[in-house]
Design a protein around this nucleic acid. Structure first.
Length: 301
DNA sequence: AGGCTGTACTG
DNA sequence: CAGTAC
DNA sequence: GCCT
DNA sequence: TGCTG
DNA sequence: CAGCA
């Protein structure tokens, strides 16, 4: 049985290998993107084929990849992948995952020193042999040795509950630190994922807090989509439409915070060139409200 | 044909 | 500037 | 390689 | 409308 | 998507 996970894995491995080989990066990315989409498909690709569906319907899958998927489902692999794995060790991919070692340096290690496994890498690093390569120095060599040790530990994800028990005291500590105005744990932790890979700590100037929080909360796919949309829109305007206090799960704005947000946006509009910030708030209309209190900020909006 | 997220850090 | 990480 |  | 770049 | 048949 060839499931989606398997297909995605093959594509990811293929992407890694051709990347080490020096393939065009967009080309590489097409495979990664395809793998991602297949992995998140609510339907089994195998079933789709059985039903005679066109695999090209899957986002990120074109004629070429549809063909390769068919081959994978039929035979468990596809010709180019077989050819590649016959020529390159799959373990190079593991090397790629060590901090500081991307596709280029991995390729260099392989070509120049014949390093094709973590074991060999560890040995070469310990013997300071890798320093001879361009782009390597003793500091990187040390980092690699550390990275190999850390590798096993780092690749495990934690359950959210465990992450919380670690994050909570961390936040308390940060709060007490000099110069810390606001703090929040971002990433998959903030998105409430079931498991969390790490807790990134990052300090930014206060003016960047909002943007940084958006970016570091992610996910990566969200960020990519968000920016692509912004690009398509040509940066003409950006709308900030918040919730009122009624929506407690979103920590909606009360009158005071709304006023402050309006002020902030007005100031930004003065400074910004080429993009207009729009502002609004989504509210409930209560038939019995006087409309006077709530209308206070209508003009500003 | 032409774009594909965008930026900081490190060697 | 190239390579890498996020 | 895929997408517009 | 369908194909090409 | 723009350009073209």
């Amino acid at each position: 049985m060839v499931n989606n996970i398997y297909i995605a894995k093959i594509f990811n491995e293929y992407a890694d290998l051709i990347e080490i080989e020096g393939a065009n990066r967009f080309h590489v990315n097409a495979y990664r993107n395809a793998a991602y989409n297949i992995l998140n498909l609510p339907k089994s690709v195998e079933d789709m084929i059985r039903e005679g569906r066109d695999l090209t319907e899957i986002p990120g899958i074109g004629k070429e990849l549809a063909e390769k998927i068919s081959k994978i489902v039929e035979t468990g692999s596809f010709p180019k992948f077989e050819e590649l794995t016959g020529r390159m060790p799959l373990e190079l991919i593991e090397i790629t995952k060590i901090r500081g070692l991307g596709p280029m340096r991995t390729a260099s290690l392989y070509k120049e020193l014949g390093i094709k496994s973590i074991k060999e890498l560890e040995k070469a690093a310990a013997e300071a042999r890798i320093r001879s390569l361009r782009g390597f120095d003793s500091k990187l060599g040390q980092a690699i040795i550390e990275g190999i040790k850390q590798r096993e530990v780092a690749k495990k994800r934690f359950k959210l509950s465990l992450a919380q028990s670690i994050a909570q005291p961390l936040v308390e500590y940060l709060k007490a630190c000099e110069g810390v105005k606001e703090e929040e744990i971002a990433g998959s932790y903030r998105r409430g994922r079931e498991t969390v890979g790490d807790l990134d700590i990052r300090a930014v100037p206060q003016v960047s807090y909002g943007a940084a929080l958006c970016y570091f909360t992610g996910s990566k796919e969200h960020n990519v989509a968000l920016r692509q949309l912004a690009l398509e829109k040509g940066y003409e305007y950006l709308a900030v439409s918040d919730h009122s206090k009624r929506l407690t799960v979103a920590r909606g704005l009360n009158i005071e915070r709304l006023a402050r947000q309006i002020g902030e946006i007005d100031i930004l509009n003065e400074k910004l060139d080429g993009i207009v910030l729009l502002k609004s708030i989504e509210v409930d209309i209560n038939t019995r409200s006087s409309h006077r209190e709530n209308g206070k900020h209508e003009g500003a909006l």
